[in-house]
Simulated assay, not measured.
Amino acid sequence: MNSRSNPLELARRSVALPTGTLELTLDRGAMEADDLLGFAARANAKRGFLFLSKVLGKHWPVRPSTMLQVHDRLAATVPEVEGPIVFIAMAETAIGLGQGVFEAWLRAHPGCEALFVHTTRYRVGSGDLIEFEEAHSHAPRQFLHMPEDPALRALLLNAGTLVLVDDEASTGNTFLNLTNACRRLNPGIARVHLATITNFMGRDATDGLSARFGLPVTMGALVDGEYRFQPGDYVAPIEAAQRFDPDADRGASTRFGRLGLRRALDAPEQLAERLAGEFAPGATVAVLGTGEFMHAATLLGAALARRGVDVKIQSTTRSPILTWGAVSHALRFPDNYGEGVANFIYNIAPGQYDHVLVCHETAPNAALRELAELLHARLFHFQSEAKVEEVPVR
């Protein structure tokens, strides 16, 4: 698809993937669909396709300004309601998106009470964990941490509205599972808003969300439609994508959203100022997040862009995707969280950028150094918003 195609051609599309055939009908947003998404094939027995977002900063390189515009647009879909509101971003792929939408909403509603928290596949701290399932995922177990700060916990337990943010909605099952888990904690939740880049549940399923959830549900998406997927003969490799150990410390931080935030993160302006002064005029720069640690990379990229740097943002992932369609290049490397599962970076090749900056929350380790060696990158350990340490890699 492309934005200059015939609208009727955009509305219906059949895509032959290595894993099967994807039939797609677009009801709204068709004219910008090519700018927002492409198609990829998952190496996943549960789901053989991927609506690959081009504005998410996960599997596709994107300019910070483009991402921030999407955050503003999705924040604008949230209905005007009385607070407090809880924004929850879905791990792994949409953590940065959800945090950006939360911060955009805060900018548009100064003084309003809201909480941001993101789901995770890691335990942090020793507090209560809420578990729910993302059944179609390569790594299905997800967790939501109860905030340890009493004020943040009170926001979660007294909120009347949930805003759940993901890159796409296809069945609504994960949203329902998470909503039910939150309602067991807070029976006072009165409404849910789903904010996604793409909504492929179809009109009937979207219209039936309120009845299905048992409370008013609204949907805000940039592209709406529905899909059907007919699996082919492809057999996905059997490989572990999740090894959760409740007693293992994976080095995931408590400072960037897992235990809740009620304010926007500060951008690393001093670091951006120093780096911008080091880059030659016209140099191309990639800023990479790692796994669930995404939004700090976006903020660094945006700060560099404000200083005139030609920068794009992306992130590593645990999702195995075939090199086909919207994925032209793939690199595999060890998991820097020490879970023992493969990690990947897509659509970025060694030497493609003049500078590659890898942002990570875990302590420096062999996996990060291997990634840095693959991409000739520099490592930046975010110990907090204010304390970012460059890690020697050579």
Rank of each mutant, 00 (worst) to 15 (best):
L8Q: 13
R13E: 11
R13W: 03
S14A: 14
A16W: 04
L17Y: 05
P18N: 14
G20Y: 11
G20T: 07
T25Q: 11
T25A: 11
L26Q: 05
R28Q: 15
A30C: 03
E32L: 14
A41W: 03
A45D: 14
K46Y: 00
F51I: 10
K54E: 04
K58R: 13
H59L: 02
H59G: 00
W60S: 09
T66V: 15
T77R: 08
T77W: 01
E80M: 06
E82P: 05
P84R: 13
I88T: 14
A94D: 05
G98F: 04
Q99C: 06
Q99T: 05
G100L: 10
A104P: 02
H109W: 08
H118Y: 10
Y122D: 06
R123I: 01
G125M: 10
G125A: 08
S137Y: 15
M146G: 03
A151F: 00
R153H: 10
N158C: 12
A159Y: 02
S170C: 12
N173S: 14
A181W: 03
P187A: 00
V192T: 14
V192F: 01
H193F: 02
L194N: 05
T196N: 15
F200E: 01
M201K: 02
G202Q: 09
R203Y: 09
A205F: 02
A211H: 13
A221T: 13
V223T: 06
G225W: 00
Y227C: 06
R228A: 15
P231W: 04
D233S: 15
Y234P: 06
Y234N: 10
P237Q: 10
D249I: 06
G251R: 09
T254H: 06
R255P: 00
F256W: 01
L259M: 08
G260P: 03
R263Y: 05
R263K: 13
E273N: 13
P281I: 06
A283W: 02
T284Q: 13
V287M: 04
A297Y: 01
L300K: 05
A302F: 05
L304I: 08
A305N: 04
R306P: 11
R307N: 02
R307P: 10
V309L: 09
I313H: 07
I313R: 13
S315V: 10
R318S: 08
R318T: 12
L322I: 03
T323Y: 09
A330F: 00
F333L: 04
F333M: 06
P334V: 12
G338S: 08
G338Q: 08
E339T: 13
G340I: 06
V341Q: 06
N347R: 01
L357D: 01
L357Q: 00
V358G: 07
R378T: 07
A386H: 12
E389P: 01
